[in-house]
């Protein structure tokens, strides 16, 4: 009975949290028309979320591309297909790994930061103060942050895609003996095979669609965890943990379903 009761409470808590997060996202979307008044603030968030996180995202992208090339190249070499390595790295980075790595880094840096910042404001009554001043915290705090993250995520994904493919090229040329020109041609060729929208290959635009969804997810989960924080510093810590865990789970689950929808 105790276990059943506990499970019920956990499920109810998750459902409440999910409902709150969805409503928060919709309420933020309603204020999107006021974003012009918030351009300086949004630009500030873009700088923090984009420029500040770029070094770590870039390093992750380069080395992930390098690892992918090395691991796959060794196996391809056994079948005499090592020259196809550019194709493999390019497709994997654009379809899956670029958005996933970006989502991972933004969860760890921006999502946790949002939960901590907004959570601290919640427990120190700053959000109550905004409400009493008749200032909607969703318009004032949530919308600019969410919009900035949704814009940053696809931009970072494109950079990670490029850096990952470049990292793969270094390894392919230096360690697998593939000619740079061959690698480049193969990497582009795989993108040419797929259908396009506005000249964007399918592998790229599905990756960008994923990164848009990931940005929205990380922002919504982080901000809603912060808004629901209670109980002082401990509560803020719990909010950060909840934000990171839920974002990671949602990224991997949503990533799978988006791949299934786009490529089945």
């Amino acid at each position: 009975m105790g276990l059943l009761h506990h499970t019920g409470r956990v499920v109810a808590d998750y459902c409440t949290g999910a409902g709150y997060a969805i409503l928060l996202m919709l309420r933020a979307a309603r204020h999107i028309d006021g974003s012009f008044r918030k351009i300086p603030e949004i630009a500030g968030h873009l700088y923090v979320y984009g420029i500040r996180t770029f070094p770590v995202t870039a390093v992750m992208g380069i080395f992930f591309g390098a690892i992918l090339a090395l691991q796959t190249g060794i196996e391809l070499d056994k079948f005499g297909q090592v020259e196809a390595i550019g194709m493999v790295v390019s497709a994997a980075m654009c379809r899956e790994m670029g958005p996933f790595i970006t989502g991972l880094v933004l969860t760890a840096t921006v999502g946790s930061n949002m939960a901590a910042e907004i959570g601290t404001m919640r427990v120190s009554e700053e959000i109550d103060a905004l409400e009493i001043m008749a200032i909607d915290p969703v318009r004032f705090l949530v919308m600019p942050r969410l919009l900035a993250l949704v814009l940053v995520c696809p931009i970072l994904t494109i950079l990670v895609d490029f850096l990952g493919v470049t990292g793969g090229m270094f390894v392919s040329v230096a360690q697998l003996g593939v000619a740079g020109e061959v690698y480049r041609e193969q990497a582009l060729e795989v993108l040419r095979y797929s259908s396009t929208i506005f000249d964007l290959p399918k592998d790229v635009y599905t990756g960008l669609a994923k990164s848009f969804v990931f940005g929205l997810t990380i922002g919504t989960v982080g901000l809603s965890a912060g808004m629901r924080a209670e109980g002082g510093a401990l509560g803020v810590g719990r909010a950060v943990r909840r934000a990171v865990i839920n974002s990671l789970l949602l990224i991997i689950i949503l990533g799978y379903y988006m791949t299934w929808i786009c490529y089945r």
Binding site: M121, S124, E125, D128, A129, I132, M133, I135
Partner: peptide
């Protein structure tokens, strides 16, 4: 409403905190 802790917005300076309701309303 004066909160026990002041509840100032921590990234705004003193002047901007006081000006906030005027800018918004």
């Amino acid at each position: 409403y004066l909160f026990q802790s002041g509840a100032l917005i921590n990234w705004l300076n003193v002047g901007d905190n006081v000006a906030l309701p005027l800018r918004e309303h």
